[in-house]
Each structure stands twice: as C-alpha cells, then as structure tokens.
C-alpha cells in the first residue's frame, strides 16, 4: 500500500501542485477582483473609488489596501445568527455557495500540455479523456443554486426566501439555454473534452466567430448563472434588501461575496475555453511550437479581460424586471439556442 503510493509519488506531487496552484490562484484572484469592481465602477461612473486605506498608514497603492482591510474586517466582525434560523443549514450555506464555485475550474486547461522526461503533463486539474469533460462544470454550476437556496431558506427571512426562490427559478430557466448552446458546440467539435475543444479552435478558429449566436446565448446565460447584475435577482437590493444573504454577517458574508467572484472567474474561464480558444494564441495556428508559459499567459489575459467584461456589464445595465427575466430566458434564449443547435446540426450534415 505504502509502496504503491510511493511509486505514484511523481504523479501525486504533480497533482498536489496543480491543486494548490489552481485553488490558490482562484482564492488570490477573487479579492483583487473586488478591487477591480469597486475601482472600475468608480471610473465608469466618473468617481474615484476607494483610495483611502493605507498599509502602515502610508502606502496607498491605488486603494488595493482596501482588499486587505475588508478581509481583516470580515474576520473580526460579530457573527450573528437570526433567532429562528435553521442553525445547521445557516452554517453550511456559505460553504455550499463557495465550494461549487471553486470546483468548476477543475477541468479547464490553463495552458498547453507538455512533455517532460517521457511523461505528459496536462495543465488542468483533471486529466483529459476522463469522460466527464465539459459536462463537469455544467453539473457543478447546477449545484451552485443550492448555496443560494439554502442560505435563503435557513435565514428565516421573507426577503431571503423571495431572493432564493427567484434565484432557483432563474437558474433552472437559464440552464436550458446554457446547455443547448454548449451542445451545439459539442456537436460541431465532435467531442466534449476541453482539450479537444481547444485543439479544434486552434485549427479552425474561435467559436466566437463560428457560432456567434451560441456565444451570445451562452454568455447571457452565464451572467444569469453567476447572479451578476442584469440578472442579480437573488440579491435585488432595491427590492428585497440583500436577498439571500440579508442575514449573513462577518466571514459568512465574506465567503458569499468571495463565492460570487470565484464564480465570475470560473464562468470567464468556461467562456474562454469554449468560445475564445482557451490557451491558444490569436493570429497563429502553429499549436505545437508555442511555449507553455506563453499559452498560460494568453489564457490568463483572456480570462482577466472577460472578468473585466463581467464588471463592465454590471455597471452598464440596470436590473431586469422579473417577468422580463422569465421572458428572456424562456422566449428568447431558449428558442435562440434551439435554432443555433438545429442550424449547426444541419450545417454539419449538409
């Protein structure tokens, strides 16, 4: 048994490194994203944004110290639980919101696979050809509702319940469009493994240009799935206080907020992988000669740009009305994704 583990050691240590780097990357990128959101929104609205917090009372670095200050504050806040809340569920709700958000990143390759001393190393947490492929982030994305739902229900608050119900209805409606637009892509690729999808895009060009309709539907549905602004009905602060996390304070609230940003990162990573060519470098088709680090950099650049787009859209569009949300989900996005699927299938069999 022990010998078996030891003989596995190189693989195991590589796995360990990948897990640590990936999760560490997500956790480290999420808080600066809050900074990007705050400063970016300020710029968009002709404001200046947070710039007061300073390290040691001196170093202001454009307000980045606010990120640290926020984190620290969350840890020292009083942890309140409402009187008639379901305590057990109330405790696990932030974890239920955070863990699915974190897990979705596992299949996404951040760079070109490379060979070293006879072994091939893949830059994704789960190796390709595992049979799960891109179904996995979709499945995990489906589980993300429970964080919202459990948080909403356990806090025994009418606003929270309203938020949770909105969120559940919204996510179920938008998952249809999401799944169907992705299926159209899978059909064209002839496979559903992220590596396969990316290699196909390296050869034939990005799916953003090849299936613009599918991209549009997928993009919009991702916004709905991440609960970001034109679709942030679970929160809806002008209508239902703060929706599902009204009653959450201290680090629980911090975790909920962090989960939202991790969600954004994972959603961006999905969009990059599916429609923007993943780690491929634009204007070049010679897939095997790219340096590995360049592919990683390319992936990161696309990822960060998409994260910024998420912020950008949030501060441009107002929230929909609830009936408009359902209208868009069922009467526009769903038929559009169906049309996209049928047209692509027809194009393939032509």
């Amino acid at each position: 048994m022990i010998l078996g583990i030891l003989s596995l050691a190189p693989e195991l240590s590589w796995m360990l490194i990948k897990v640590l780097v990936c999760i560490g990357f997500l956790m480290l990128l999420a808080p600066p994203l809050t900074w990007v959101e705050r400063r970016g929104s300020a710029m968009i609205q002709d404001r200046i944004g947070p710039n007061r917090a300073a390290l040691f009372g001196k170093i202001k670095i454009l307000g980045l110290a606010h990120v640290l200050a926020d984190g620290l504050k969350f840890f020292f806040k009083e942890d309140l639980i409402p009187k008639d809340a379901n305590r057990a569920l109330f405790w696990i709700a932030p974890a239920l919101a955070f863990i699915p958000a974190l897990l979705g990143f596992a299949v996404i390759p951040v760079g070109r696979s490379f060979e070293l001393e006879g072994t091939t190393y893949h830059l994704s947490l789960i190796d390709p050809n595992n049979g799960m492929g891109l179904l996995y982030p979709l499945a995990i994305g489906g589980l993300a509702v429970y964080g919202v739902l459990v948080a909403a229900w356990s806090s025994n608050n009418k606003w929270s319940i309203l938020g949770g119900m909105r969120a559940s209805a919204q996510m179920v409606s938008y998952e249809l469009g999401l799944g169907l637009s992705v299926i159209a892509l899978f059909v064209t690729v002839g496979g559903y493994d992220p590596h396969q999808v990316i290699l196909d895009q390296v050869q034939h060009g990005w799916y953003l240009w090849r299936q613009p309709l599918g991209f549009l539907v997928f993009f919009v549905c991702q916004f709905a799935e991440t609960n970001r602004l034109p679709f942030d009905f679970a929160e809806g602060e002008s209508e239902i206080v703060a929706g599902f996390h009204t009653e959450f304070g201290s680090m629980k609230f911090g975790l909920m907020g962090l989960a939202e940003y991790v969600h954004i990162i994972v959603a961006s990573a999905l969009i990059v992988t599916l429609y923007l060519g993943g780690w491929s470098i634009p204007f070049s088709r010679d897939g095997d000669s790219w340096p590995v680090l360049a592919t990683v950099a390319s992936f990161l650049a696309k990822l960060l740009f998409l994260c910024w787009v998420f912020v950008w859209v949030r501060w441009t569009l107002p929230r929909f009305r609830y009936d408009q949300l359902m209208h868009i989900g069922w009467k526009i996005m769903f038929p559009l994704s169906l049309i996209n699927l049928v047209v692509n299938a027809w194009w393939l069999t032509r």
Partner: peptide, 12 residues
Amino acid sequence: VSAALQIIVYAG
C-alpha cells in the same frame, strides 16, 4: 457521463 447527467438533471 451518467454521473454528470445525474447531477445536471436530478440535482441541478
């Protein structure tokens, strides 16, 4: 595949 579909359809 069944696992993913199980989670997407039933749990999700």
